[in-house]
Amino acid sequence: MNQFSAKSNKLSYKNSGVDISAGNRFVRKIKTTLKSTHNKGTIGSIGAFSALFDPKPYKLNDPILVSASDGVGTKLVIANEMNNHKYIGIDLVAMCVNDIVCQGARPLFFLDYLATGSLDIGKASTIIKSIATGCRESGCALIGGETAEMPGLYKGADYDLAGFAVGVVERSNILPSAIKENYFLLGLESSGLHSNGFSLIRDIVSTFNIDIHDKAPFSRKKLGDILLTPTKIYINNLLQLIEKKHVYGISHITGGGLVENIMRVIPSDLTIQIDLSTIKPQKIYSWIKGISKISDNEMLKTFNCGLGMVLVIDERNVKNSLKLLKSLGENPRIIGSVIKGKSPLLKGSLF
């Protein structure tokens, strides 16, 4: 046997870093988890080359499909450092379905993409379970996905997540719709940082030599656990408000921050005014502001600053909308209004 034959005998896909049998064991392990998310449109189970979904049970007259895709960003780095992956999938689902409801749509189904250097079945199962938790909370079925082992591209415990969601809305109910001057802006509280701004957070942690395993100075919890608070899913409460036709526009406050995301739903001949003193950011934001001395403007364009969703409501329905949202457990507040003009007008102080 020559030296080339000896080397060839050691070559295999598994020895190259891709374990197909581990992937098959993983799929078998998560089948029950996926089944727990099935809704009335789900057809079959995982294992086919593609996934099927039947929209007929939703009994829409003129259905329009709505799609969204997103990830979790470098919040994944915090999850790895804390060795806590039981919420990160909720973040993934939330980032997609919260975008879908901004068009007035109901999420139908979800697909995930998990990429890693080497498949850790236990860790991956925890991630999928958290994705399933988010899907159950938002009423959409986890009907498939892809798990990719890519040795050489991802190192050590590194992994990445992407999510893809599809929803549906009646054509006549698509949002935003007919937003006018003097309509109110209602803010809905976030659960914290959600899934944006973590590259800046990590820079702050590094710059000031902060150990995220230590208790936060403003809480009894570890800073890392606070940073991993899952993104709030607003679907069920917002769908109830949408069904009453109280809503003319919805903004998901993610990358780009408060002002930029609200302006995405405002007609070009109108703008917004916001009273920043009405927002009441959570303690995590006051801590970020205090330790980093970041300007209010930088805070506003990087973080949600305490508001995860902003709704545009007309004068006639604002009182009933506030009442309904409070009955559903939200803490809504009027933060401003739609006005004539080109540039957003901010007044008051955020901190």
Rank of each mutant, 00 (worst) to 15 (best):
L227V: 13
I291E: 11
G104Y: 00
F303T: 01
K280S: 10
N237Q: 08
K222E: 15
I284C: 00
I291M: 12
H252L: 08
D120Q: 07
F351N: 11
P55A: 03
S199R: 15
Y154L: 13
A51P: 00
I174R: 12
P57G: 06
S286H: 15
I284S: 00
V72W: 05
D314F: 09
T271G: 04
V265I: 15
S21H: 11
F4E: 12
S130T: 06
L325A: 04
M95S: 10
P107S: 08
L175G: 09
K323F: 11
G71A: 12
T74L: 13
C102R: 02
P332T: 06
I143W: 04
N196A: 13
D120G: 02
S172Y: 06
M299Y: 04
G255W: 11
E330L: 14
T147V: 12
D203M: 11
G224P: 05
I266Y: 01
I20E: 10
M150L: 15
L345S: 14
V247M: 09
N236W: 03
K29E: 14
S292P: 03
V166T: 14
I284T: 02
F53H: 13
G152P: 08
E189M: 11
I64S: 07
K10Q: 09
P107L: 10
P55G: 03
L11Q: 13
S295I: 01
T271F: 07
L228K: 08
N196G: 10
S349L: 08
H252T: 05
V66I: 15
G257I: 07
S343Y: 12
L346V: 03
D70H: 10
S295K: 02
L185H: 02
A22N: 09
S45F: 09
K215L: 12
C305K: 02
D62Y: 08
K222H: 13
G134K: 02
G145H: 01
G23Y: 00
I46F: 02
P230W: 02
K75W: 05
I143G: 02
N297E: 12
L227D: 09
S321R: 10
L324D: 00
L223E: 03
D275P: 02
I128W: 01
L324M: 09
T133C: 04
G192V: 04
S277A: 11
F164W: 07
N209K: 14
L108Q: 00
L186E: 09
I88R: 04
I90N: 06
N331F: 11
S268P: 04
G73F: 11
T116C: 15
I250E: 13
A178P: 02
G41E: 05
C305A: 10
P57C: 03
L60M: 14
S118E: 11
K244I: 03
G17K: 03
